[in-house]
Write a protein that binds this DNA or RNA. Structure first.
Length: 272
DNA sequence: ATGGTGGGCCACCCA
């Protein structure tokens, strides 16, 4: 049996927060880390410190200043694809396969996503960023639907910028018109989930009637005290991997580290 | 109803 610890973290600048990344990998004994918002080009990504720590397998999809995703691993990996969803050429997706981790003879793939935030106004007619977000989700759903007949075992992680359930936000009622929790986005995300019957791995371990957050705004005076969080970061698995995820945790302490990201890392423990 | 913070980069854009 093979035990793997996988994590996802919107880091909000990989260069600025490399000390936090190294601390997280060490303290929590992470095997594979998917980062979003690395905010740098591939050649600017600080690889040497990661390699020195044993993370020798690094896949990058960076761009200048904005967005960008990276998958950092102790286990061998190969890049499968970097896909542009939503019609705007931004670095928001990276699919790798863990060549040594297999299910029914097929290597397990890990999709690392950074879905557009969508701006402030939840109306695609007046807000192009919101239109882009909806189109991005639409393209995700189509892409996965096309694979339905013969999808390999896949895990999807990342900052999806949507908190779909009532207890994925601090106040369902007060958030209904706030981008990230509007019914139209939630519906779109549901379509993506249905495209391959994706399993919401985090909610397999925390029931839907309990609050579960992964993000807290920088703007709160005391994020812990006000606790106005949202579950924007997700881990999904294809049905053939049901039962593979034995545990999960949102690493809230990292939100209080020095110069933190506004997202906490999410860890899942996997057994193959 | 408003503005609050943070990162990249050097005027503002993005979250």
């Amino acid at each position: 049996m093979q035990k793997i610890r996988l994590a996802t973290w919107n880091i909000n600048s990989a260069r600025l927060r490399m000390p936090q990344i190294l601390r997280f990998l060490e303290d929590y004994e992470v095997d594979v880390l998917c980062l979003q918002e690395i905010k740098c080009q591939n050649e600017q990504f600080p690889q040497e410190e990661l390699r020195a720590l044993g993370y020798e397998h690094i896949a990058l999809n960076g761009q200048k200043a904005y967005h960008g995703v990276a998958t950092v691993s102790r286990l061998p990996l190969e890049i499968v694809e970097k896909t542009v969803f939503g019609g705007i050429d931004e670095a928001r997706h990276l699919n790798i396969e863990l060549t040594g981790v297999q299910r029914a003879g097929q290597a397990v793939q890990i999709h690392n996503f950074y879905v557009p935030a969508g701006g402030d106004v939840a109306d695609a007619a007046v807000n192009p960023k919101f239109a882009h977000k909806l189109q991005f989700l639409d393209d995700m759903a189509s892409s996965f639907s096309q694979q339905k007949a013969a999808a390999p075992p896949m895990i999807l992680v990342g900052d999806l910028n949507i908190a779909p359930l009532e207890n994925d936000v601090w106040s369902h009622k007060q958030m209904l018109k706030v981008v990230s929790h509007t019914p139209v986005e939630v519906e779109q995300l549901l379509k993506v989930a249905q495209s391959l019957d994706w399993i919401d791995a985090l909610r397999c371990h925390v029931p839907e009637n309990e609050k579960l957050f992964t993000w807290w705004s920088y703007r709160a005076k005391d994020w812990k005290k006000s606790n106005r969080g949202r579950r924007l970061d997700h881990v999904w698995m294809t049905p053939d991997l049901a039962g593979v995820c034995t545990d999960m945790q949102v690493v809230e302490p990292a939100r209080s580290w020095e110069r933190p990201s506004d997202h906490a890392p999410v860890i899942v423990d996997l057994e193959f």
